[in-house]
Amino acid sequence: MNKQSTIYKVLLLGVLCAFCGLLLSGVNGLTAPIIEEAAIQKEKANLVLIYPDAEFKEVKDYDDPTGLITGIYTAEGLGTVYKIHNVGYNSNGFTFLLAFNNDGTVGGFQVLEHGETDGFGSRCFDEEYVSSVESLTTSDSAPLLSGATLTSTAIKQGYDAAKALFTAK
């Protein structure tokens, strides 16, 4: 076949894309279960950091109009943990856990993964900011942090979404 013909070029690109797609599908089949299992283990490990001796149950039926809450777990007799994903400065966003004790105080604030800028947005996950969030209640809102406005605003939005679900229970 003439290498300069359009059919040849389309065929070459088509075959190459099909081969690459098959290869990716094979490797995805191999790695996806491992990635999923690691994510579940990581989440359990973080839930335990907030309520060390609790038994957790996942709440599947909830209505979150903001779309920020990606998971809810109740710690028997202690409180509720909300898994929240929102976008700050990094367009991939970040994920964190926020827990409310049954008395309405914050039970814990734990980041799971983030790509916020080191020294700026990442300050929202430093001890100082985390402890300020952990001292709040359902009548408060998360504080904004100068120099990390986008990240702390995203945390505030997540906090408000979790608070709305918790108080609506």
Partner: peptide
């Protein structure tokens, strides 16, 4: 386009393996 398809495939493969 041919080289980019090859490189993008390899990078995605490496990314999947690293994530796992």
């Amino acid at each position: 386009p041919v080289y980019i398809v090859i490189i993008a495939t390899l990078v995605t493969l490496v990314g999947m393996l690293m994530q796992a």
